[in-house]
Amino acid sequence: MGDFLLVTIQVDMHDRLAITLQEDLTERIVNDRTRGVLIDISALDIVDSFIGRTLGNIASMSRILDAETVVVGMQPSVAITLVELGLSLPGIRTALNVDRGMDLLRESLERG
C-alpha cells in the first residue's frame, strides 16, 4: 500500500472503539510515516455526532502530523441523516470508494 493507510470499519462503532481508533491511527501515522489515511465507512449504517466528531478529529490530527485523511464510501441514507442532524463535516475530504480515495490522495501528494 506504500505510503497510505487503509482503515475499514466493519463493526457497529461504540464510543470507546471510536476513541481507540483515533489513538491507534495517530500513532501509526507517526510510526509508519504515513502520508495518507483512507477510512472506509461503507459498512457503517449510521454515523451519529460522536462518530462524526471522531472522524473530524482524526482528519485534523493527521493534518498536523502531515498526513491527509479521506473518508470513503458513506451510504446515501447516512449522508442524508448527517446533514439533517446538522453535521456537514467541513474539514473532512471524502470520496465515493477506496479507489477514488487513493486517486485523491495521490493527486494531493503530487501537488505538494
Binding site: D45, I46, F50, Q75, P76, S77, V78, I80, T81
Partner: peptide, 29 residues
C-alpha cells in the same frame, strides 16, 4: 440495534430507519 430491528419490522424505509436509529443514538448517549 433494538431500534433498527423495530424500525425494519414496522416497515420504515432505509432513510427513515437511519434517522430514527441516529436520533436514538444521540438520545441514549
Amino acid at each position: 440495534q433494538a431500534v433498527r430491528a423495530r424500525a425494519v419490522e414496522i416497515g420504515l424505509n432505509l432513510v427513515d430507519q437511519t434517522k430514527i436509529v441516529t436520533a436514538a443514538s444521540e438520545l441514549a448517549r
